Computed example of a mutant assay.
Amino acid sequence: MELTQIRLLVSDFPTAYRFYRDVLGLRPQFEAENGPYAKLSPDTGPAPIALQDRAQMAGVLARLGVEPEGYRALVVLRVEDLDAAHAELTSRGAEFTLAPGPMGDRMRVAYLEDPEKNLIELQEWLTLREQAGSAVG
């Protein structure tokens, strides 16, 4: 089994697409601002995020509700400098629900929502697992 992507079902495809492309700065595999599908990738790493028009998918899966309630997804993006990423995304119009702060002793995080109310976590790793393990021994 191989994970190929995480796909978010979105009700307002153009708005979600522009958020991931223009605000978060992910690179589209191909331009598809009006959908019904797009795959966008961060600068590093193999894990793309895909957007799927919710109404189109509801036609495939009759059980799919019109609108989800509460958080249904958490997208986690690692950044090298959380404060710099926070400042850059804020300058692009992102509104954070939680400003940068510590999460334990190995990372700092900040949270924002995409236009579909999916939760996004930005992580800055302070100590890599390998470094933490070698420091103990």
Rank of each mutant, 00 (worst) to 15 (best):
P42N: 02
L51Q: 06
D105Y: 04
A38T: 10
D114Y: 04
A73R: 06
G59S: 03
A58E: 07
R78E: 15
L126S: 02
A99R: 06
A85V: 12
E88H: 13
L89G: 02
Y20H: 05
Y111R: 07
E113A: 08
L119N: 00
P46S: 13
P115A: 15
E95L: 13
R21P: 00
L40G: 01
D12T: 00
R108V: 10
R129N: 08
R129L: 15
I49M: 05
D105K: 13
L77A: 00
G65H: 02
K117D: 11
R106L: 15
G133A: 08
D81S: 13
A38Y: 04
A16R: 04
L61H: 10
L126H: 05
D114N: 03
L82D: 03
A50C: 12
F13R: 01
L26Y: 00
V75K: 02
T4F: 07
D43V: 12
L98M: 15
L119D: 04
V10C: 10
A38K: 08
T44K: 09
S11Y: 03
A16C: 13
P28N: 05
L9P: 02
L119K: 07
P36W: 03
G133D: 10
F96Q: 08
A84L: 12
E95Q: 13
E88K: 14
G104N: 10
D81W: 13
A94V: 10
R7Q: 14
I120Y: 12
W125L: 11
P48M: 11
L74A: 03
R18F: 02
Q131E: 14
V76M: 14
G25H: 05
E69F: 07
L119R: 10
V75P: 00
D43C: 11
A94D: 06
R106Q: 14
R21K: 12
D114S: 04
A87F: 07
M57I: 13
L64F: 06
L24H: 02
A73T: 11
Y17P: 02
P28A: 08
Q29W: 05
A87H: 01
R92I: 03
R108Q: 11
P36I: 07
L112T: 03
D81I: 14
T127Y: 14
S134Q: 12
I49L: 15
R21Q: 05
